[in-house]
Design a protein around this nucleic acid. Structure first.
Lengths: 183, 183
DNA sequence: TGAGACATGTAATCGGTTACATGATTCC
DNA sequence: GGAATCATGTAACCGATTACATGTCTCA
């Protein structure tokens, strides 16, 4: 049972990536600079300390490859505890707070979920997500109404932006659910 | 000329809000808990230190109201330096990095911009934003193609999510431009 | 008289940013 | 021989989170 308090998105993303295949710090940096996961920091000052923390917490294990050569590298794999923590994160219920403050993390969780928890759990995750997204919109709508009556046109535009974002999010989730249910 | 290095979104948002009307720390907390700006932290441990930093940098000035009473409060207003820094932030060109890593900040900037820089500058801001948004999509499209050919369906879904988000962002920006140009 | 809103702080901890630092290997 | 890529780190700084802490005012 991992008792660590590690929960930053970067470490969770790292854990997820390492779960897909063993990786070095350099590999991670490449993912964070060359794939759409580039909204994560790829600076060595973020990644190497993160890997050290994960290893110290027993969530990953580094094996040195090419120890005899002049350019050895540290390849990390998940430990059982690491896998467990990752699953714990993925199985967390979707909260209103997630939908408001951690919109992007929810997509990240989805991405790892398919391979790790399977199709069924991914489907219920998406349905839960869908519910939370839907239940958030009315409050935005209310604020839009007040912004309109108080004549703050810029505020109103900004809130419209938010509403539209959540609406496509919902449409996307429905679409993915349909696709996954088609088999 | 403010030489401070203050640039966290929270402090910039604070500066923007105080520019609209003088505010206390408590007022800010209320905004951050009761309006769609609730994705900002409203914890006293974030706000009060931020206000102190802003005041120490000479960007805002606190005046104690009700000093004689038992519940005095500190009302902050922008200083000239504060206003200048705020304008500097708002006038910054929209970069690719903004569009990737600071999507939300861009909307925040838009919100303050109307009142502070006026309609013309807001329009050019939106057009700049539009360009950057458009120029970002092709790279996502490419990654979508590779994800599809390598049979990573979950990755592909996630990238589709991103593309759709940017597409509505673009639609929104166009819509607002049209509205503002109608006068 | 008690609940809830008003009002402001501090301290420990943690992690990300920025900048610095070093060296090997590969390929032209 | 030089550029690009491979590969890994450290240190100072800063700001956000969490938890703790305190007290007033208003209204039912």
């Amino acid at each position: 049972m991992p008792e660590s308090t590690i929960q930053s998105v970067l470490t969770l993303a790292t854990l997820g990536l390492i779960s897909q295949r063993p990786m070095t710090g350099y590999d991670l940096r490449k993912v964070f600079t060359t794939t759409p996961m580039w909204h994560f920091s790829s600076s060595p000052g973020a990644i190497y300390p993160a890997l050290q923390r994960l290893e110290n917490s027993g969530l990953i294990k580094g094996i040195v490859e090419g120890q005899d050569t002049l350019r050895p590298k540290r390849v990390y794999t998940l430990t059982k505890d690491g896998r467990q923590l990752l699953e714990q994160w993925l199985e967390q219920p979707v909260t209103q707070d997630d939908v408001i403050r951690r919109r992007d993390d929810l997509v990240l969780r989805f991405t790892f979920m398919g391979n790790i928890l399977g199709r069924e759990k991914t489907l219920s995750y998406l349905k839960e997500l869908l519910m939370q997204l839907k239940s958030y919109i009315p409050s935005l709508q209310e604020h839009l109404d007040t912004a309109r009556t108080t004549e703050s046109p810029y505020d109103a535009f900004a809130i419209e932006h938010g509403i539209e974002m959540y609406q496509v999010y919902i449409r996307w989730a429905k679409h993915v659910i349909d696709r996954l249910e088609e088999n």
